[in-house]
Amino acid sequence: MTKLIIILLSAVFINNYVLSKFLGICPFLGVSKKLDSATGMSLAVIFVMLMATAATFPIQKYILDPNNLGYLQTIVFILVIASLVQLVEIILKKYIPSLHKSLGVYLPLITTNCAVLGVTILNINENYTFIEAMVNSLGSGLGFFLAMVMFSGVRSTMEGSDIPESFRGLPITLIAASITSLSFMGLGGVIENIFGGV
């Protein structure tokens, strides 16, 4: 149980996907301007990460590994994720239109989000069990959510300020991201200290 908590907390705070592993930077910079789109996007990412792990983990363990097909990992995973996203979109549209309305715009974008492919491959590389892999995906998704929401706050504060001309737009956003990422670095070591004795 402690191990699961450690995996969850370190995925959220320490190995944050956006701010320390640089995965999913495009949506992080592109969609973080408004709080509601940032929330929608991150909820969709959490959802797809969990679904993708639930689908790719058994495929790797029970189909690819026993048949020595490990080298097909990249192709199989990206195809599974792409078709899964399509499938989820169709199902949501038909049965839960309200949820589709709030997440629908973001779902197709997630296919090309490297955080999703990244988490599925990392789960395999880290030799997690199925439960640990799911917890790690949840933590990574929550970490993405946290980074997006925090950063959209930072950006809305920045909106009215007078910025030197050549820094307008992307450069200042990146520098703000750098400072946000710095604040996450301060959390390094906290988890080890809390659970250090275990």
Binding site: E165, L174, M185
Partner: peptide
């Protein structure tokens, strides 16, 4: 480290803009 990556990239793009 991670923050430095964002920082250097931001500065480089600002220089390119200039």
């Amino acid at each position: 480290m991670a923050p430095g990556g964002f920082f250097v990239f931001g500065i480089l793009i600002a220089v390119m803009n200039k």
